[in-house]
Nucleic acid binder design. Structure first.
Lengths: 370, 370
DNA sequence: GTTGAACCTGACTGCGCAGTCAGAAATTCG
DNA sequence: CGAATTTCTGACTGCGCAGTCAGGTTCAAC
């Protein structure tokens, strides 16, 4: 009601109210205001009520800088991410922000500079300069020369990275390899003799793991995998590599390191007169929203961004809280959620062109809905 | 060399060095250290050198909280974004981070909570609580009841939003309408009588503008536009709406509010036995990386994320610096960069099914490379 | 040599908050 | 009823830094 009109009403922007202002209005001490704001014990209901009313009336907002200064905690998590808008990295970022927010922390991002070595360390440095309690490395890529990351706060990496300080490292290790293996197994189970692989840049951890899963799937059956071909995640690279693969009659099945690459590949195959899946089966990775609506709808591996993000955050928070080495085992899923989404881009090998199309065309096709 | 071993070497984590530590080692006062760190004038080369050496030796990092406390500036820009990994929002976020970083500011993100009204204001509140010097609203959507956004720092919106404080508002207004118009004009110029429109959710500013451009393109020619259909940006909604459109023989051209929707649409048309572009032409929006590799390669409108982001940042920084109403006119491009990328999904109307395919199939097709 | 200006430096202070502690008031217990 | 305990409160302090100011030094100009 009676607005305590600020002393200098004439000035442009009046000073933000601090705890002393609230205390004065409420008739208590600054320390009591602090207690109320931080929900501490030992404040009478009467005082609490008065303070809250005064704070609301003044529009009081605690000053984070001052709080951080006295507590030494910033209440902020930093994330180093790649400067790409690709589905994978972007989804991870969204999941991380959500998890961090729900944990009550602020969220800072430092993107790496594209094509710049050591840019992960630079990202870490920028985060440290602005003040964070912990750092998450999303989509880690290798630093040159196996350099060690340096930081005086806990670091957690979503996926393995060499050179991490002792704290660190994360969950997802095992299952990404498993995912790559499952995709490959699916194709081998269909009867394909070998599965070709369009890999991602091998300085990315995720790309390496998928390749490793693909390799293992072959070796487990005593098959020598064909040489893999390295792309750059883009549809363009999938298209270019696809033109090569289309020329090789031995190629009947391809596992792509992501859905974008698969999109380019399919176009190249089609332009070469090959049919998917009748002549060549294709598996992607990511399950981007459009995957179910490509022609043909793409068999792919659905990523578990939410779960990965939450594991990373849990690990980081426990380290921030002081646990020297939080044990994460057991939380690693056993794969019961079946990340492989089988759609119409995979089928048994055909290998005789011109054969009549199978009836799949009008068959019901699973579309993702999550 | 002679490492000044910290007093309590036994303790786990030793206290981070402050300016007094550096000053002691360098043989100067704390204030001089402050001067060197902030690159102020009036420091002798000798002092500067000593301080820098000492700072490096101790691994000194200025404490942002203390600095923010004394200066009242956080050196941080906050962005409120949608919690989606879609190409558009994610690209904007990447561009914004880059621009903010280059301006020497830190970058905080607050995502909105999906499906929650008032979540933009909540995002703003979260940013204000953690301390930012200014806020950018990326991909603004309407708040319920035309509520005014409240903040005691400058806000800039990437696209118009009702209820913004006087400071605010941005650049892109004009050209997004123009983009929608250009896409539609392209189809009308090809000879289509009308262009159907799969719109985005109309509480999104971007979706409204594109629809408006589509509408204007019709009205300018004295054509009554057909009713638009509202999707939700997803391929799924494009597919569902596509099934309706496929049943209407009048439909020969569709402008989709984004490339994902177009992807779903094309599948629905294809499944209905229609050919793109022979029976129906399709234009998308965004120019996602896969757009050039769909079948057919998609005619679409390329977004100008970098430019938009930079304009928003420039506007925000100038307001932070004190300019009450920075005038942005003139910076609005005149369209000389031709955002419409014409590929193979658009052609003149055919309208007699079963006609021989035109020769486009093998024709060279532009692929984006930027 | 004197005057002034530019240059350089450090003591002191306050930013807004939470930690510490001493003490008052209310409650429980023997 | 007094003693021990719990609850409540505020004075005081320091976190690490940059702003202010006073003083000292150097240099050029008169």
């Amino acid at each position: 009601m009676n607005e305590p009109s600020p002393p200098s009403e004439s000035a442009g922007r009046r000073k933000a109210p601090d705890m002393y202002d609230v205390a004065r209005l409420a008739g208590v001490s600054q320390k009591t205001v602090s207690r109320v704001v931080n929900n501490e014990r030992y404040v009478s209901d009467a005082s609490r009520e008065k303070v809250m009313r005064a704070a609301r009336e003044l529009g009081f907002r605690p000053n984070t800088a001052a709080r951080a200064l006295t507590t030494g905690r910033f209440h902020r998590i930093g994330v180093v991410s790649l400067s790409t808008a690709g589905w994978g990295p972007a989804s991870l970022l969204v999941a991380l922000e959500r998890g961090v927010r729900e944990a009550g922390f602020s969220f800072s991002v430092a993107h790496t500079t594209e094509g710049r070595p050591q840019s992960m360390q630079e990202g870490i440095d920028r985060l440290l300069e602005q003040g964070v309690d912990g750092i998450i490395l999303s989509e880690p890529i290798d630093e040159p020369q196996g350099r060690r990351f340096e930081a005086d706060v806990p670091i957690v990496s979503l996926g393995y990275t060499d050179g991490l300080p002792p704290k660190s490292v994360v969950p997802t290790d095992a299952h990404v390899v498993a995912d790559g293996r499952e995709a490959t197994d699916h194709l081998l189970d269909l009867g394909h003799a070998k599965v070709w692989h369009i890999a991602g840049p091998q300085n990315w951890w995720a790309a390496r793991e998928r390749l490793e899963g693909w390799r293992q799937a072959h070796l487990d059956r005593g098959i020598e995998p064909p040489p893999h071909i390295e792309g750059d995640w883009s549809p363009a690279s999938g298209y270019e590599i696809g033109k090569q693969l289309a020329a090789d009659p031995e190629v009947t099945a391809v596992f792509c390191t992501n859905d974008d690459t698969a999109t380019g590949l399919i176009l190249a195959l089609t332009e070469a007169g090959l049919r998917v899946p009748e002549d060549v089966s294709v598996v992607g990775f990511d399950d981007i929203p459009a995957a179910a609506y490509l022609r043909p709808p793409l068999t792919t591996v659905r990523q578990t961004f939410e779960a990965d993000a939450n594991q990373a955050i849990a690990a980081l928070l426990s380290r921030i809280a002081g646990a020297p080495d939080f044990d994460l085992e057991g939380s690693d899923g056993d794969g019961s959620d079946r990340p492989l989404i089988i759609r119409a881009s995979t089928a048994p090998p055909w290998r005789h062109r011109g054969a009549p199309l199978p009836e799949r065309r009008g068959a019901p096709i699973e579309r993702t809905d999550s």
